[in-house]
Simulated scan of single mutants.
Amino acid sequence: MTLSALLLLVPAAAFAARDLAVPSLSLALGAGQSEPENVSVLLEILFLLTILSLAPAIMLTVTSFTRIIIVFSFVRQALGTQQLPPSQVLASLAIFMTFVIMRPVGVAINDNALQPYLSEEIGFTEALDKAQQPLREFMFKHTREKDLSLFYSISKMERPKTKEEVPTIMLAAAYVISELKTGFTIGFLIYVPFLIIDMVVSSILLAMGMMMLPPMMVSMPFKLLLFVLVDGWSLLTGSLVNSFLL
């Protein structure tokens, strides 16, 4: 009985489908609008899409992320815990710390450039110039003159007389080099105490004749104990944040 009912409903549904209005879509080619206003808007949209696609690279280069992730990697190697904490956890913590450190820069960009531009108080070019100023001040504060001079020597460009004459791309490259040096310096200072523990444990095991016992296996609990007793993560996080506020 059920099968007979279904066979009767199929032709009825097909007949009803004939009365449905099927939407249609038509495409047409025509001359584009070449007004300067339209071209300017299209260029602005293209620029914004480019910025969004380069956002990860920008975050890795012109913010505090580089120094933080390098120091975290040194700490993990010094503790000898292999993959603990996981790389994803360290990267997430570095990102959140970057947001906290870069918050004043982001607020300045929003107040001086983004909001006036959205309110149509300033043009796109002026907004772009004002957005660069807080970021340039931050990079200038943590960039060594030696690193900036290196890139000018490589590019054989004329030395600038003022900070305003330094291109942002040149400043960003010098800033990354300075951050790498600073991160490695902090990592070395953190590595020294743990290295001393490894040397002491290795000497004790050698004196006891336990040459077959890996020193790292014995020293790791002592290094973890020392790191926990001094509240290492809190101390390290506070020191890194303060290094950008000096």
Score class of each variant (00 low, 15 high):
177 I>A: 14
88 Q>T: 14
72 F>G: 10
18 R>I: 11
152 Y>N: 05
206 L>Y: 09
201 V>E: 03
151 F>C: 00
227 F>P: 06
119 S>N: 15
24 S>A: 12
156 K>Q: 15
116 P>K: 03
228 V>H: 07
2 T>G: 13
211 M>L: 13
99 F>M: 06
92 S>C: 06
200 V>F: 10
28 A>G: 09
149 S>P: 06
226 L>S: 02
7 L>H: 08
110 N>K: 14
238 G>V: 02
89 V>M: 14
137 E>T: 08
50 T>Q: 08
113 A>N: 08
70 I>R: 00
90 L>S: 12
115 Q>E: 13
55 A>K: 10
197 I>G: 04
142 H>G: 01
191 Y>P: 09
26 S>W: 05
90 L>N: 06
117 Y>I: 00
239 S>Q: 11
11 P>C: 00
70 I>F: 07
44 E>R: 15
80 G>T: 02
198 D>W: 03
100 V>G: 08
213 L>V: 12
19 D>Y: 12
120 E>C: 07
136 R>Y: 03
144 R>G: 12
217 M>Y: 07
183 G>E: 00
86 P>V: 01
46 L>A: 15
92 S>F: 15
240 L>I: 11
3 L>C: 04
44 E>C: 10
117 Y>D: 02
71 V>L: 06
145 E>Y: 08
95 I>L: 15
163 K>T: 13
188 F>T: 09
166 V>C: 01
74 F>E: 04
87 S>H: 11
218 V>K: 05
32 G>S: 14
75 V>T: 12
139 M>A: 05
135 L>N: 00
43 L>I: 06
81 T>I: 11
69 I>E: 00
239 S>H: 12
8 L>P: 05
102 M>L: 02
37 E>P: 10
223 K>L: 04
44 E>D: 11
48 L>T: 12
9 L>G: 08
33 Q>L: 12
199 M>Q: 12
178 S>A: 02
41 V>Q: 14
33 Q>V: 08
32 G>Q: 13
7 L>Q: 13
43 L>G: 15
189 L>G: 07
169 I>P: 02
154 I>D: 03
209 G>Q: 07
129 D>Q: 15
21 A>T: 13
14 A>D: 05
242 N>D: 14
8 L>H: 09
212 M>Y: 08
50 T>S: 15
138 F>E: 02
119 S>E: 14
235 L>A: 15
68 I>E: 03
33 Q>C: 13
185 T>Q: 13
132 Q>N: 14
210 M>G: 07
32 G>K: 08
237 T>M: 09
6 L>D: 14
4 S>P: 04
18 R>G: 09
145 E>K: 13
156 K>R: 12
116 P>M: 02
194 F>E: 00
176 V>M: 06
47 F>W: 10
234 S>Q: 15
141 K>C: 02
91 A>T: 06
128 L>K: 11
173 A>T: 08
158 E>D: 09
165 E>K: 05
8 L>K: 10
207 A>C: 04
105 V>Q: 00
